[in-house]
Design a protein around this nucleic acid. Structure first.
Lengths: 358, 358
DNA sequence: TTGTAGGCGTTATCAC
DNA sequence: GTGATAACGCCTACAA
C-alpha cells in the first residue's frame, strides 16, 4: 500500500538494489519522485490550485470536488510540502522558541503550554536552547530567522540593540516571557524584583529581622534576590548571608550551600531561595544539621514545584503558573499573526503560598 | 542601520504610515522587498551561485571573492531563506522530535542533549508533544512530515503498521529512544523489563520476600513494573500490592499512593517505584506515617533525579544517562544524514545506585 | 574558481 | 467555484 517504501530495516545491503531505479530529476537525496500537488490534481481531474484550496480553504470548494480531491490524496499518500508552501505564501507556520534550558520546570512548563497551544492551531515550534548566556541567544538568532518563523518566543526581556535590530528587521511578532521590563514587542510575565520585595514583606510581617539569600546566577533569579535584599534592608532587617549558585539550580546545590552558610546562622533567620529546588535542599540540610525549620530557619522558595509541595515540611513558595504563561504567549502570537496589533504587556499574577517551612 | 524596521513598538498607529510604501510584488505579509541572494550577488559583483557557495561551501571560493561577498551580506543585512534553500536542495536541515512531554526530566534530558548536539551541526529541532498517547503521535505525524524533516526522533519503540508505513514513505532516518524492542530503523535505549528484573534481583539478594510496586501508567514504566513483578515472583517473593498512577508521575501522587497502600504493608516490604519522584513521595509519606525506611520499607526509584539524590534518606535508584541518550541519538542521525547505513540498535547501560532508602 | 539554466512544490492573483 | 500564470528564493547540474 505504501507508494514508495524507501527504508529497509535490518537489511543493510538491500538499499543498493534500488539505486538503478530511474528518477525524473537527479536532485537531492531521494530516489523516486515524490508525490506532488500536480499528481493529486491529475488523479482527481482538477487543477493544482483546487487541490491547494481543498487543503487550505475547504469552504471555497464544492463538496463534490473536495471529495474527489481527498480521495486522490489518500490514494496517492500525498503529504503536502510545507517548505514549498511556506516559500510561496511567505508563511512558514513555524514559531521559534528560545529558552535557556528545558532541564528546569521553570522553562519547560511555559514551553509545554506554548507548544501545546500552537500545535492545536497547526503551528510547529522550533526549539533553541541558549543555556543562560545572552550572547548565545544573539549568536543563534540569525540561524533561527533564516527559517522564516512566523513569530518568536524569547525568554526574559531587556535585549541589546543588536538583538532589537535583528528582530525588527525580521518583521515578525515577538513575545518575551517570564519577565517584565522594557519589552521589545509583546510580553507575558511579571516583575521579579517585586516578587523578592513581597517575600521580604511576608517575612517582615512575620517578625523576621535576620535575612539570607541563596540565588541561582541567572538574571531573573538575581532580580528576585535583589528585590528581597533591598526590601529586607529597608524594613530594618539585617542581611546575614548572600550566596550564588550555578544555574539551573538543583536540590544538591541547595543542600551544599546551606551547609556552607550554616555557621553564620545564629539567631532566627529568614532564607529566600531562588527556586524551590534550592529551598528543598536547604530545608533538608538544615534538618540534617539539627537546625529547626521553621523555628530557627524559615525558608521560602520560588516556583511552586511539586517536590516542594509534597516535602516534609512542605516548602513555602511563590507560585506562578508557567504553563499558563506559555499558553497566553501562544494565544497572543496567534492573534498577532492573524493581524491584531500589539497590546500592552501582560502581567501575570504571582502569589506567596505559606506552607510548613515558614 | 537596520535595512527595514517593520515593527514599531508602543506606537499602534505608526504602522499605517508605512502602508503607502511601494512594493514590487503584492504577495505575502511583508511590505518592502526582502533582501535576496541576487541582491547580495549584485552588490558584490558576482553570480548568485557564488554567494550560495560562500555560505555553504566556503572552501570552494577564492578568499578575495568570499571577502567581497561577506561584506555585501553584512552591508545588506542579508539573512538566507532556508525555506527556499530546503525546497531546492531537498534538505530542510530540520529534525523532528516527538516526545510525550517535557514536564518530566525523563524526556526533557534526552531532548536537551539531542537539541544541543544538533544545534552545533546547524540543525534545528521541531518539537511535538504527544502526551503519552500513541494515537496522538500517529495523528501528528503527517503534519510533521509535511515539514520535510531530514530525520526523526521518536520516543519508545513498538509502532503499529500505520506509523511504520508513513515513516517508510517519508524515507528519512528515524531514531527511537528510551526503549528497546523492535526498532523501526535506529534505536538508542535499554530494556525496561530488564531494569525491573534487575531491581527485583537486587531486592532478593538483600533478603526481601515481600514486594510492592507503584507505577505510572506509561508503557515503559509498566514494562519496568512487569519485569520487576515477574522476577520477584520467580524468586519466590510475595506480591503485596501493585498500583498505577497517572503519567507523568510526581511526588504528591507518590505520597498519596503510599498512604493508600500503607494498610497492606505489614512485614518488611521492598517497593519499586517507576520514578524517583514517586519514590521520594513514598519515602516522605512512609516517614510521616512512622514506617521506618529502609527497615520496614525499602524503596527503589528510577531515573536518578537530583531530588532523590539529595533527599534524606537518599533514594536508591536506577541510573540512566538521559542526556547522553539524546546526544547519541543526534550523533547517530547526523551520521545517517551524512550517508552512513543504519547500524545495530545501541543499548545504553543502566545501573542500580544503592542509597539510603534500601 | 565562477557562471548559466532550470526546477524544487506550492500559493497569490487575476481571469473566467 | 475553478483554472492559468507567475512568482516565492535558493541550489543541483552542468558548462566554461
Amino acid at each position: 500500500m505504501a507508494p514508495r517504501a524507501r527504508l529497509v530495516h535490518s537489511e543493510p545491503m538491500a538499499g543498493e538494489a534500488g539505486k538503478a531505479e530511474t528518477r525524473k530529476a537527479g536532485r537531492g537525496r531521494s530516489r523516486g519522485r515524490n508525490v506532488r500537488i500536480t499528481d493529486v490534481a491529475a488523479a482527481a481531474g482538477v487543477a493544482p490550485m483546487t487541490v491547494s484550496r481543498v487543503l487550505n480553504e475547504p469552504d471555497r470548494v464544492s463538496p463534490e470536488t473536495a471529495r474527489k480531491v481527498r480521495a486522490a490524496i489518500k490514494a496517492l499518500g500525498y503529504v503536502p510540502n510545507l517548505l514549498a508552501g511556506g516559500l510561496s505564501s511567505r508563511r512558514s507556520r513555524m514559531v521559534a522558541a528560545m529558552v535557556p534550558t528545558i532541564a528546569s520546570p521553570i522553562f519547560s512548563a511555559p514551553l509545554q503550554g506554548f507548544t501545546d497551544r500552537l500545535a492545536q492551531a497547526g503551528y510547529h515550534v522550533m526549539l533553541s536552547l541558549t543555556g543562560y548566556r545572552a550572547d548565545a541567544e544573539e549568536a543563534m538568532l540569525p540561524a533561527v530567522l533564516a527559517r522564516r518563523p512566523d513569530a518568536l518566543l524569547l525568554t526574559g526581556a531587556r535585549r541589546g540593540t543588536a538583538m532589537r535590530r535583528m528582530l525588527a528587521a525580521a518583521g515578525v511578532p515577538v513575545v518575551e516571557i517570564w519577565d517584565s521590563g522594557p519589552a521589545f514587542d509583546s510580553l507575558v510575565g511579571f516583575d521579579h524584583e517585586e516578587v523578592g520585595r513581597e517575600v521580604a514583606k511576608f517575612f517582615l510581617a512575620a517578625g523576621h529581622t535576620r535575612f539570607a539569600v541563596l540565588s541561582a546566577s541567572d538574571p531573573r533569579a538575581e532580580a528576585r534576590a535583589g528585590g528581597f535584599l533591598r526590601a529586607a534592608a529597608e524594613g530594618g532587617g539585617e542581611i546575614i548571608e548572600t550566596r550564588r549558585l550555578p544555574a539551573p539550580s538543583n536540590v544538591s546545590e541547595g543542600r551544599q550551600a546551606l551547609r556552607e552558610i550554616a555557621p553564620q546562622l545564629h539567631g532566627r533567620t529568614a532564607l529566600f531561595c531562588s527556586s524551590d529546588l534550592i529551598a528543598l535542599g536547604a530545608v533538608t540540610e538544615a534538618r540534617a544539621l539539627g537546625i529547626k525549620v521553621p523555628d530557627a530557619l524559615a525558608v521560602c522558595g520560588f516556583g511552586d514545584f511539586d517536590a516542594g509541595r509534597a516535602s516534609e515540611p512542605s516548602i513555602t513558595t511563590v507560585s506562578v503558573d508557567g504553563t499558563a504563561i506559555g499558553r497566553q504567549a501562544a494565544e497572543l502570537l496567534l492573534a498577532r499573526m492573524a493581524g491584531a496589533a500589539a497590546g500592552p504587556a501582560v502581567r501575570v499574577p504571582f502569589r506567596i503560598l505559606p506552607r510548613g517551612s515558614t
